[in-house]
Amino acid sequence: MLKVEHLTKVYPNGVVALDDVSFTVSEKEFLAIIGLSGSGKSTLLRCINRLVEPTSGKIEWYGKNIVGMNSGELRKIRRQIGMIFQQFNLVKRASVLTNVLSGRLGYVSPRISLPGIWPKEEKERAARALHRMGLDDKAKSRADTLSGGQQQRVGIARALMQEPKLILADEPVASLDPVLAHSILRHLEELNRDEGITIMCSLHFLDLVHRYANRVLALKDGRILFDGPPRDIDHARFKEIYGEEAEDVRATFVDAPSQ
């Protein structure tokens, strides 16, 4: 579904964030992206929906090149790709419901969204998304009154409104404690398994990668260092990715109970 070829991103300040990155993603994959801070994980995810403009290279979405696409076409692609963030990126002062409904902005006409008069079917869709995330009673709450884990679940509900084929997750659990991290990743796992939504998720902790991902992309200095199943990351590969001094820090000491 996604084919990235020779993707390069150089920021205006001269930093090379991605250097000739190529890979393909198939439907229903749970792809983890690992690497040190600054290795290009966020830039890679943001290039795919062009929140960051690639410098060169190709990104093919079902055969269509996203790079160089005009904004109207791009918006049609973006709405098929959900995104969740480390800082959740909810509008804090708005209600949970409004935040979730904003996931629908790529579909509804501005005549509906600008005055904020959402039709019943969209509200029901939002209610279903919130129900799925176990947040039925929070629809009217202000987003910033929710805990971190709840806010991330609102983030996922917002992404679900897009009926996405792919969810880009940029360090979705880095701001959460280990128990909540597992809860969020289990939600993503469930969407991957039950809905067939492809997941591309940058992660910090290797044990989470082993537990949830079925493929790993390791980045170092903007280049792909490793692309394969998690079990192939042995001690040597680990040192290669994270440097000689690195220790394998785990998010949890015991395996989280499954489901």
Binding site: F85, V91, T98, S102, P110, S113
Partner: peptide, 18 residues
């Protein structure tokens, strides 16, 4: 939030509003 709303496929005016 601006980034998040843009990522949903919202246009510039909708992004400003939401």
């Amino acid at each position: 939030p601006v980034e998040a709303v843009r990522a949903t496929g919202a246009g510039p005016v909708e992004t400003i509003f939401y």
